[in-house]
Design a protein around this nucleic acid. Structure first.
Lengths: 258, 258
DNA sequence: GCAAAAGTGTTGCAGGTACACCCATGC
DNA sequence: GCATGGGTGTACCTGCAACACTTTTGC
C-alpha cells in the first residue's frame, strides 16, 4: 500500500495524502459468488440461479451478491448461502463447509462496471430439499455438475476451479463428511468420494483407511440402520471433527502406467 | 489511465435495475499485497517496505498497492513486484512464481476506509541483490521471516498464511526451483526444502526422490561445478517445468510416533 | 591426511492394492 | 433361494526411511 493512485479530485476535507480519498478512485464493486455443492442420487450437483436481469438475462449463474457496507466477504457468503438455500447459519445442518476459493478481477468480467468477485465453495449435506426461493432467488435449482455449462459471466471458470479444489481437499481433510447428514454409514461416505472423484473404490480398503485415520469419523452411540434397503444393516458414524488427515486418503488416480 | 469516471447518479441509458448503479454502494478500494519470499544464507526472507504515511507510519508492511482502473489483480501484483524488486516481468529471472493467496476483507482492516485486499505470494531466486528503491519504495529490505513481526494492518496474518501455503506447495509442485537460480545443484535445492520446512533431510534419499520425480529437474548440458566450496563438484540441474509432482515430495514431519 | 560435500548401495518395515470370503437383511 | 450391501482376512508389492559406504575436491 505504498503507491499513490491518480487523484481525480483533490478534497482537502478528507485530505489523505497517500491516496485514501474514496472519491479519488474508480469505484470497485465487490461481490461474492458461491459454488454450492451437494450429492444427489450419486451425482454431484451445484446450486444455480436464473438471472432475471441483463446482462445474461435468463442465463443460469452461481448465486451471489454484493457485500454490504460493513460486512466481510465471508459474512456476505454466509448470508447469501442462507438466503438461497434456506439453511440457517446455525442449525441442524450447521457444520456445513464454506471456504474461500479465490478472487476474480478481470476488468471485463462484467460488461457494465468494474466488479471484483470473491468466490466461495460451499458443501451441504445430501438429502436436501429443493432450494426455497427466498426473495430474489425465485429461480434457483440444483443442477447436475455435468449439465452446468454456459453460465453467466466467468462462472463456468469459477465452477471448474471450485470442483478442482473440492476434489483435492477430500484427500487431506475430513471435508467429505460435510456432504453427509449428521449420521451416516461408511457406504454413504464412500459414495461421496466416488461421486466427487468420479472413480470407484474398493470397499474393504476404503473402510480400513477411513477407520485408521484418526478423527475422520467416530461411531454413533448405538445402533445399526437399514434405510429402506436390502443388505446388512450398517453401523452409523458421525464426523470426527479432524481438520487435516494423517495419513491422507489419496485418490487412486493415474498410477505409474509405463 | 484515462478511464471514464463512474456515474454516481442513475443513468437511464445504462439502466441497471438490479443493483449495478455504482453510486448505490459504499465505494470499495481494492489493493494487492505481496508476500515476496527468497532464501538467503539458509534462512527464509521476506520483502518488507517501511510505511512513510499514516496509519502505521514507520511500521514495516508488505509491499502492495491499488489496482489501476483497468487492471486485474494479477497484473497489479506483477507490476508492484517489478517496481519493488527491480525485476523485470520478463528477464533472466522471469520464471519466478506468483500465486494468488486469498482475499482479506474485514471491514476494519484499514482504519480509514473500506479496503479489500487480494494477497499474493511470490518466490524469487536466491542470490538476489537488495531491493532497489524504485520510486516510493525507498525503504524496502529483505527481512528474515522470524524477525518479521508487528507488521502494519493485518499483514502478520497474511504473511503467516503465505508461509503456510508455500510450505504446503513445495510438497506437490515443482515450486522449490523458483527459489533457485537458473542452474543449481541438488544440494542447493535440498537447502530450499530444508529452509522452508525447517527440517533436515537425508541427502541420499532426497536425491533419489527428486530424480525419480518426472519433470522436477533436468540435467544442465554439460558440466560440474564447485562454487567456492570444498567437497566434490556437483552436477548442475535446471527446473524441469512440471507443475504438479507425481509422486509428491512429502515433508518428513509427524510420522506415526506412538 | 583430514574435512566436507557429492553420490551409490542395501535392508527392513509400513502401508496400500487386490481379491477371496463370510454375514445379515429384503424379496 | 437369491440379490444386495456390510464387514473380515490375507498375500503381494511398492516406496521410502535409515544408515553404511565410496568418490572427489580444498586445505
Amino acid at each position: 500500500m505504498t503507491e499513490t493512485p491518480p487523484a481525480r479530485t483533490a478534497d482537502p476535507a478528507h485530505s489523505a495524502p497517500e491516496g485514501y480519498d474514496p472519491g479519488a478512485f474508480e469505484p470497485f464493486a465487490v461481490t461474492v459468488d458461491l459454488a454450492v455443492f451437494t450429492v444427489r442420487e450419486a451425482r454431484l450437483h451445484v446450486l444455480l440461479v436464473r438471472r432475471g436481469e441483463q446482462p445474461y438475462r435468463d442465463r443460469w449463474a452461481l448465486p451471489g451478491g454484493f457485500l454490504h457496507p460493513r460486512e466481510s466477504a465471508e459474512a456476505a457468503a454466509r448470508r447469501e448461502l442462507a438466503e438461497e438455500t434456506g439453511l440457517a447459519p446455525e442449525g441442524p445442518y450447521a457444520p456445513l463447509h464454506l471456504e474461500q476459493l479465490r478472487t476474480y478481477s478481470d476488468p471485463d468480467r462484467d460488461p457494465r462496471m468494474r466488479v471484483v468477485s470473491v468466490a466461495y465453495a460451499a458443501l451441504v449435506p445430501g438429502p436436501l430439499p429443493e432450494p426455497r426461493g427466498g426473495g430474489d432467488a425465485a429461480h434457483a435449482r440444483w443442477t447436475a455438475l455435468a449439465e452446468a455449462r454456459g453460465l453467466a459471466f466467468d462462472h463456468d471458470r469459477i465452477l471448474a476451479d471450485a470442483h478442482d479444489r473440492v476434489g483435492a481437499k477430500l484427500e487431506y481433510t475430513g471435508l467429505a463428511t460435510a456432504f453427509c447428514p449428521p449420521e451416516f454409514t461408511l457406504g454413504e461416505l464412500q459414495q461421496v468420494y466416488e461421486t466427487v472423484w468420479g472413480v470407484t473404490l474398493d470397499r474393504p480398503n476404503f473402510r480400513r483407511k477411513v477407520l485408521a485415520t484418526p478423527g475422520l469419523v467416530t461411531p454413533a452411540h448405538d445402533g445399526t440402520r437399514r434405510t429402506g434397503g436390502r443388505g446388512k444393516p450398517a453401523v452409523l458414524y458421525r464426523a470426527g471433527g479432524a481438520a487435516v488427515l494423517h495419513p491422507p486418503l489419496l485418490r487412486p488416480e493415474r498410477r505409474t502406467t509405463p
